[in-house]
Design a protein around this nucleic acid. Structure first.
Lengths: 200, 200, 200, 200
DNA sequence: AATGAATGAGAATTCATTCAT
DNA sequence: CATGAATGAATTCTCATTCAT
């Protein structure tokens, strides 16, 4: 009786599953402990595999980190684009955006990008990736929406680019704080945050 | 030929100066690079001494970190107490507090405390220190001030403990983001931040 | 649906072909990169099979290396024996031997034996194999031929055992140098080399 | 009582001694086992120090290897230059050169250069270094000497560049073989080797 | 027979800490 | 008090080998 080797599709599926499993594990660990504080053995343990296998799927810690950052950037772009399809007034959309950003499920991505921006030992490629999608990109993206809201009287008067950058910074700061589950910090109510924008 | 040995007081003074020098250096480096990312040799270099000498003054990296955290906690307590001596209405004092917190000179202390709260590799003792002075301590401390402001109509209605914790979290988040000098983030105008509190 | 299983003879033939294929690949790679520098995956790639399959045919890297060395020893014995069937005078035969040794096709075998003699990480068994067929074996084998040549006045006077060992060492050295294709070294003309033997 | 730290000169001396000690140890081990076969721990053991200290003096295995190759190249240049100061005829000088090259003390250097030329895992810089001093350099250097000898009838007629390259290759091959102390190979008598050159 | 996923021992390198001077 | 040489534990990564399919 001959046992055929796994066919291409099966192998491909195993590979994909393992890769996803590793990526999920790595995202958690990197987000929590930073790139230096993360040991490959921690990721392997979290993923439930041997550290040797990690290197079967990712050439190095750097490559793994880069892959994660790339994924995070794509996610955040998608979130930004989805704004347009929402119903309601400008301020409704901004509220939805705020909720989306503060959603805990996105927190690891946030931390990852934050670390790629600010930590030591970040691979050059990851650094370039996050620079591409700088704060300015987001501000430009949101400017039409905020302008519309300001004209409708929903948003406080004043320089909108500054306001948007400030608001996003506040949200980012909160996400960075909230990564730790037993955080001493408190995530504000959406309405309280929106006062910064509306002035009311 | 050896000069007459220094007397006790002189030695003591040298010791204290050296210690301060090391503490200042360590604060900078730890704040910027975190406890894991900071190598003893970096601190020695920043302080302009040999790494061997570091160990004459601090038994270990841990002890040095603990000392810094202790100092940071004392500083932040002092800042909090100084609030009472300020002139003006409640909102004036809150504005002053905000300015104080966001002042760049305090940023390293903020980062340090943040790291002591959230990073790996933090000595147990440091972790206990920051827990002692939890968010709750600060909230309790500020509650009378905010209550006064709310009664005067300067502060939005609603649960004040939540509001204070939220506001402090926002400020903390901003400080954490702003440690990196070339930060992509933007520090908001004080007035914009205060809208969260005043509701106007 | 599975085809009828191959009969024993067919299986045997496949086995032998595969083995030869692997041996040829391994010889090339080991000769070029040495036993430590050769990775099993390189041999698999050169043979066009998976690295897993390698272990169906050879229990380990060691066993594979031993097999190669054994083959090389047999080859070199055969070359030595074929000397006797050659036509011509003693010096003609020595010239033919020289050509045979310096032939590039034999170079991988030479390197292999050289490595078995001199490298680290060589299995004990391979080491014993090459010791069996030591320089002395070859010298003894060639002594009658050289003696005949010396008596005929074709070969310089002096101790023949030393001369033979020296000459073989020179040839060996040249083969070892010339393994690398883009070698900076130059393979001498046969006639120039023969001067060492003839003294003319 | 104050113990002054070591002064600069003492430190410098310790450093130099240690470096020499490491270089001598590394030369031996690299020559015998090649760059891949050499473990840093072996060098440390041979030098009688911890592996950590190795990295105090040389940033990496690569750097250490490069340093050795550089030294070997310098040595070989010096040997070549010293030829001119020798007394006697051309053939006397060639004999002296041969003795110099075959001297066992130079063997490790020879192996090192050979390995830098032919092994895997050789740092790019080392490879460039040895390419600079190619066979051609040596041939050009020796050409005047051999021409003089040929005109004096001490050297066989024929293309001298080929002869020189061939002769050097033979010597190199012998050195490469003879690195292993218990070598099965035999180093020929100088006079026998010189027959290749003189034709007599 | 054939494949490649999976494991783990081993090697290079870093860095906190100790210690002779 | 001050220096930097010295050590070794911990970490990243490689590769021979095993094994399910």
């Amino acid at each position: 009786m001959t046992l055929a080797p796994l066919n291409d599709e099966q192998l491909h599926q195993i590979r994909d599953e393992r890769k996803d499993q590793i990526i999920a594990a790595a995202l958690n660990v990197f987000a929590r402990r930073g790139i230096i504080g993360t040991k490959m053995s921690m990721i392997a343990a979290e993923a439930g595999i041997s550290h040797g296998l990690l290197y079967h799927y990712f050439k190095s810690k750097e490559e793994l980190f880069n892959t994660l950052v790339q994924g995070a950037m794509i996610e955040s772009q998608a979130a930004m684009r989805s704004l347009y399809d929402l119903p309601g007034s400008a301020i409704d959309k901004i509220r939805a955006l705020t909720e989306e950003i503060l959603d805990d499920r996105g927190a690891p991505y946030f931390m990852l990008i934050h670390q790629a921006r600010t930590s030591d030992g970040v691979p050059e490629k990851a650094r370039q990736l996050v620079e591409q999608y700088s704060m300015k990109t987001f501000v430009d993206h949101l400017l039409p929406l905020f302008t519309e809201g300001q004209q409708a009287g929903e948003i406080a008067p004043g320089n909108l680019e500054h306001l948007i950058a400030s608001y996003l910074s506040v949200l980012s700061g909160l996400m960075v704080l909230n990564t730790q589950e037993d955080s001493a910090y408190r995530k504000p109510e959406i309405d309280v945050l929106l006062r910064m924008v509306t002035g009311r």
